[in-house]
């Protein structure tokens, strides 16, 4: 097991290097430089000043040399300094926002599991029942709904029409004056819509996947054996079938992580949540290369880590894989 883990982690290194090479070159070869944005509003900016800025940001060197120096800094754990006017270290800027994004994504993963697994199991066990048909329609529509549109509708309905939930930010204006309990409920109220929206995309996929798995599993011989032994239907479904159907779903959860992280750009922008996705959007708009590179790198690491955790838990859960 340990050897497998080490091998997997070592394999991640070339993959990560490949990702950074692609990102770096695509970004730097694209027309338009950060210095254009910073100088175009200033009529006094001369060509010479632009050159000085380019030199300051090391943008005057060939791309491969820039990449090399980025990589050297990275090996010391340094992600560089932001181009924006605060000139703060990229790592600081990202780290202060990462917990928010991770919290929302973990919460939505939990919600996805809590809702999608029972739906998938029930619709497989009661195949072609009314419940199965209704959930099939909902799941099908769930695949097609643009999440940002759903977010808008929920904001209009719950936020404006009913006035039940806040529609932007993480804290109310009077947050400082609330009791600890009040602060917690305030935070929770702000999180309901973003977490639901972020979970929504994964719900349809996982419940459909669970249903398909379950349908396959309950046709296996060992289920027939369990029934033949005289076990109750409950035991057959929840002890014997569910465990086996859950296994492949672990992988699907691992694979859904890039989608969740990518989606955080959209919902953090809509709900004005100060997370990594919002930082990414603002940095991309300002052509803040170091921050964009840093977030792409962290997004890739999170994705790879998610896949690794999925594979490892699969191996732990399934003895057949553990042995081979």
């Amino acid at each position: 097991m340990l050897r497998y883990l080490i091998k997997r982690i070592l394999l991640m290194v070339p993959l990560l290097l490949g990702i950074t090479v692609i990102c770096f070159f695509v970004m730097h070869l694209a027309p338009g430089k950060p210095t254009d944005l910073q100088t175009q509003m200033n009529p006094k900016a001369s060509a010479e000043m632009k050159q000085r800025l380019m030199k300051l940001y090391e943008l005057d060197k060939p791309v491969h040399l820039q990449y090399w120096s980025w990589l050297k800094k990275l090996s010391r754990g340094d992600l560089g300094t932001s181009f924006s006017s605060d000139h703060r270290p990229v790592a600081d800027k990202i780290l202060e926002r990462l917990p928010i994004t991770i919290t929302i994504n973990v919460l939505s993963l939990l919600i996805i599991i809590a809702i999608a697994v029972p739906i998938g199991v029930l619709s497989a066990v009661h195949q072609d029942s009314l419940f199965d048909k209704i959930t099939a329609v909902i799941v099908f529509i769930g695949f097609a709904v643009p999440t940002f549109w759903l977010a808008l509708l929920l904001m209009i309905f719950f936020g404006i029409h009913l006035g039940w939930l806040p529609i932007s930010g993480l804290r109310s204006l009077n947050y400082e004056y609330l009791s600890t309990w009040g602060q917690l409920t305030d935070l929770a109220r702000h999180l309901i819509l973003p977490v639901f929206i972020s979970a929504f995309g994964g719900l349809a996929g996982l419940s459909r996947y669970m249903r398909a798995n379950m349908l396959e599993v309950i046709r296996q011989d060992y289920i027939l054996t369990a029934r033949a032994k005289g076990l109750s239907e409950r035991q057959v479904i929840y002890r014997h079938a569910l465990r086996n159907a859950l296994l492949p779903a672990i992988t699907i959860l691992g694979l859904s992580i890039p989608g969740l992280i990518g989606g955080s750009v959209i919902f953090e922008t809509i709900f004005a949540i100060p997370g990594m996705g919002q930082l990414f959007y603002m940095s991309v708009m300002a052509r803040d290369y170091p921050v964009v590179m840093g977030i792409l790198l962290i997004g890739a690491i999170l994705t790879l880590a998610g896949n690794l955790i999925a594979d490892v838990s699969y191996a732990i859960a399934d003895p057949r894989i553990r042995i081979s």
Partner: peptide, 24 residues
């Protein structure tokens, strides 16, 4: 296939956003 793996393992929407914003 290794190239496919690389392309699949980062949040595609991040990459799309970065490229689009840097291009006009």
């Amino acid at each position: 296939m290794r190239f496919v793996d690389i392309m699949l393992c980062f949040p595609a929407f991040f990459l799309i956003l970065a490229v689009i914003a840097f291009l006009e």
